[in-house]
């Protein structure tokens, strides 16, 4: 994945990964479904935006919506097939579908540009009613835009989690059979959560495409799916709403800061992750949770 130049761009990158991880965490920690193929939806969002800019209309909102809706559409499709399952079965199915999407991106040259991907699209300006359009090429402007989008997404996810719908997701996570026996169509709720999660990941992917001005099939590879799982858990997403944000920060900083020093930053990242899984499986924010209950 491409490296960042400049601190503002770095900050935007963190926000984008945070969005991806928050969307993913809705599924993992709030519904109890582990997905190892979520990079597919991130990538579909990215390609959606890129293709809109290159083949249709250079428009910011349209590109983002197309990316988000395309990801949501495919998440709905896959979700409909796999919502009956859970646990490791579910995880393996997401892995299989994730790889299918990767290879489609890799092989379908005519549409996706194949291995070389899609490049050559800029950030369209942001139209604000009553004011001159905002040029998003400037890193600070893009950062502010990303920040606002992330805030909106976070508020929406927060409200969702605290709504009646959110409590059903929790029930499904903790005891799906009992949730069924209360009268909930649990398969529907799992499907809905999967689709929403896919949409949010797609939006993040679309933003990522805007950030970098390029899209590659690598965005959908299973190791990227593994990364978002890692980010989410590392920060403490399993126990805290903001865990994914922290995890995204750590990941991007390691990737870029350590990456500037040595090209072998992945080694450190892998080690960090191993240590966290072994010593503090609830992630960094999980540490604070323990101290809180100990008091």
């Amino acid at each position: 994945m491409p490296l960042i130049k400049g601190y503002t761009a770095l900050a935007s990158e963190i926000l984008i990964y945070a969005m991806f991880a928050l969307g993913f965490n809705l599924l993992l920690s709030y519904t109890g479904l582990p997905s190892f193929g979520h990079a597919a939806f991130f990538g579909i969002g990215a390609y959606g935006l890129a293709l809109t800019q290159l083949k249709w209309v250079k428009d910011l909102w349209l590109g983002l919506f197309v990316g988000m809706l395309a990801a949501g559409f495919f998440a709905a499709l896959v979700g409909a097939i796999i919502a009956r399952k859970r646990g490791v079965y579910f995880a393996l199915l997401t892995l299989a579908f994730g790889q299918m999407f990767f290879f489609i991106a890799f092989r379908w040259d005519e549409v996706t540009g194949g291995e070389t991907g899609l490049t050559g699209f800029d950030r369209p300006p942001l139209a604000i009613p009553g004011l001159p359009p905002l040029n998003l090429t400037a890193p600070m402007n893009f950062y502010l835009f990303t920040l606002i989008v992330l805030m909106v997404v976070m508020i929406l996810i927060w409200r969702l989690i605290h709504s009646p719908f959110g409590s059903v997701l929790q029930a499904v996570k903790q005891n799906e059979l009992r949730a069924k026996y209360l009268g909930y169509n649990t398969i529907f709720y799992k499907w809905a959560s999967f689709t929403l999660s896919g949409m949010i990941s797609g939006l993040a992917g679309a933003m990522f495409a805007l950030q970098h001005g390029s899209v590659f099939p690598q965005y959908l590879y299973w190791t990227e799916s593994g990364n978002v799982v890692m980010i989410t858990i590392m920060g403490g997403g399993v126990v805290n709403f903001f865990g994914p944000v922290l995890g995204a920060g750590i990941f991007v900083i390691l990737q870029n800061a350590i990456g500037a020093l040595t090209e072998h930053w992945l080694f450190l990242l892998g080690l960090t992750f191993i240590l966290i899984v072994m010593v503090i499986p609830e992630g960094i924010l999980g540490l604070f949770k323990k101290t809180k209950t100990a008091q």
Partner: peptide, 29 residues
């Protein structure tokens, strides 16, 4: 039972099902 929910939340999610509020997305429960 729902082990990680409080007693209140356990019963509430059950009542919620009966009163058909499960599909409400944005109102705080």
């Amino acid at each position: 039972i729902f082990n990680d929910m409080t007693v209140f939340e356990n019963i509430r999610v059950a009542v919620q099902a009966q009163m058909n509020h499960g599909m409400e997305f944005f109102v705080s429960r």
